[in-house]
Design a binder for these strands. Sequence first.
DNA 1: TAAAACGTTGACGCCGCGACAAGGTCAAGG
DNA 2: CCTTGACCTTGTCGCGGCGTCAACGTTTTA
Lengths: 252, 252
Amino acid sequence: MRIGELAAAVGVSTRTVRHYHRVGLLPEPQRHANGYRTYGMRDMLRLARARRLIELGLTLAEAGDVLADDEGRELPEILAELDADLARQEEEIRLRRRQLAAMMARSREGRLGPDDAVSEETARLLARIDVSIPDGPTVRRDRELLAMFDGGRAGAVLAEYHKALDDPALAAATAAIYARFDELVDASPDDPRVPALAADMAAALGGELTAVVEAAPPGELDDQPYGAALVGDFPPAQAEVLRTLYRKWTSR
Amino acid sequence: MRIGELAAAVGVSTRTVRHYHRVGLLPEPQRHANGYRTYGMRDMLRLARARRLIELGLTLAEAGDVLADDEGRELPEILAELDADLARQEEEIRLRRRQLAAMMARSREGRLGPDDAVSEETARLLARIDVSIPDGPTVRRDRELLAMFDGGRAGAVLAEYHKALDDPALAAATAAIYARFDELVDASPDDPRVPALAADMAAALGGELTAVVEAAPPGELDDQPYGAALVGDFPPAQAEVLRTLYRKWTSR
DNA sequence: TAAAACGTTGACGCCGCGACAAGGTCAAGG
DNA sequence: CCTTGACCTTGTCGCGGCGTCAACGTTTTA
């Protein structure tokens, strides 16, 4: 048998057979006078066995070990390990498909933005915000931030936000604050609305702030780990509100 | 923000962030005077979005496309494709786990050889052979061959073999033939038992042979596609039996 | 006699980074 | 002032399991 016949009989490519030779999974067979590899039945058996193990999910090295050990001494442990690995993969796939199904459903009912690739829990809060708070640049940014920290890093914030939306009066107050913040988009940092809004925000967002800056060190917001990046993303007056708010909070 | 802070905030390595820059998934941010990359909130948002898509199973290129398109135009198709792919993988994993479970069960009850990584159907036939035919070199080789061609390439042979084992008389005759074949292991090719055995095999293995050499071209067995490799695996007298058998069959 | 269909070795590509190497930068401490 | 250590920079190799050229020799077929 030449390499093409062997490969065709077992159902692999000649490249695969040569690859197995190079990595030592199959021994190099005898060569014909012209340099062609010449295979016998025993080579074919070994290749077929290796393929069955590989198709089960063993790596080439593992398959080689199993075939080298006379009569599969360590096969059971490899199988157990492999099964555990497959079980884990299966669970992962199921989880992702659940997420995908939710996203595809949302895609069919409405629009689907990049922030919809988010856990169901966060998706519920985002949907609630969407119906409770009038649209605006700041609420959009907050939605983005909530989505960004999806995955356990801001679970406490989610709970506080839900509480704020549970009470219609609180929800209305929150919406009002968003609106006032939006109005400052082109204002000067000296605008008298800045300290007023900061004071009202400090009063209104008490619980939520507790969750976020639980251990806020003193100093200016710009000097905090992510503070500079945060305020840098806002226009001057809005940034000033954040700085004032941070000062109020750390001096509490 | 510097790269380490960004990476820590999103939960990836700095190496990953730089990799995303190189492949174009994230734009290179501004540099500080010392050459350090400096990130803002928008970079963080983009990275977090990309990560969520990637963790869902999108490739880096796909995630880049989705984030590049303003508001996910082609996201739904990618999601559908991805879900189909995951469904296929899930099915594959389930299939492999079924095979693994069967193998692990066999491993617990008895011994587990390299030929047990085989379909349930073939495994059943191998088990039947094991109890019906006394052990010997030839029956072992036949078991190996059956296992080798597992997977649809020899389904007809399986059926014929089952039929031979269904009838106790046929099973006994088959066992006898195996025994006589084994006796020829050290015999000369001129041994008078060779033609006698070939004749009896031709009579006994009619159906099975029909399945194997359904369209056997005339000529010597050694000149057939896999004939040389096959007879090369047998001692002289046994090889001669096979040649004679092939001649009988093609001149039928 | 030429073309096609085999065979040979060798090298690069894929995907998503991890793990080095070989440095430069910066703040804190002795 | 010097060192230490924790950052940052670019660049390259490695992984797994082959597919896919390239550039060439051999055998079989029209």
